[in-house]
Amino acid sequence: AKKKIAVPGVGEHPLQYNYSFWYSRRTPGRPASTQSYESNIRQIGSFASVEQFWRFYSHMIRPGDLTGHSDFHLFKEGIKPMWEDDANKQGGKWIIRLRKGLASRCWENLILAMLGEQFMVGEEICGAVVSVRFQEDIISIWNKTASDQATTARIRDTLRRVLNLPPNTIMEYKTHTDSINF
């Protein structure tokens, strides 16, 4: 069923873009094929204003409290959090691996920067993901054009600033075509 497009309520503070939250969890023992990925991902809902964002976010479990192999995705409304989406096909992502205990704070700082348009890269941002794993957690931010080095450099520099990470934190850029081939 087609989801209703979100609109800001009266007196609320509109965002530059509407966004949708998604949640996915890997079923143990299943291969990670495209089909099973798509069937394991659920849209939580969409929002158009700062206040609507908080209404969702305040009721969501913090990434650091998730167990098992799970992900939260926050993407612009209309973009699926998948490589195959037209907005992502030519794109890539910055990946930051986090030791356990940092995911909740880093995820919040990352999505607040995205919602508040702190990256200053025009239409380039597609969405962000936090992936909870056994040994470590991973946050990533996806953009449309992997070949645009000025954009990817600006995203990296903004990430460093808004996440306030230790200077030795490793940041890795991966194009989605690399991920597909891998």
Binding site: H13, Q16, F53, W54, R55, L115, E117, Q118
Partner: peptide, 21 residues
């Protein structure tokens, strides 16, 4: 056009505004 830019503090301050409850 004009972009709608919010800093972290502005967003956090809206968290407990009556309209968000």
């Amino acid at each position: 056009g004009t972009r709608i830019i919010y800093d972290r503090k502005f967003l956090l301050d809206r968290r407990n505004s009556p309209i968000a409850q």
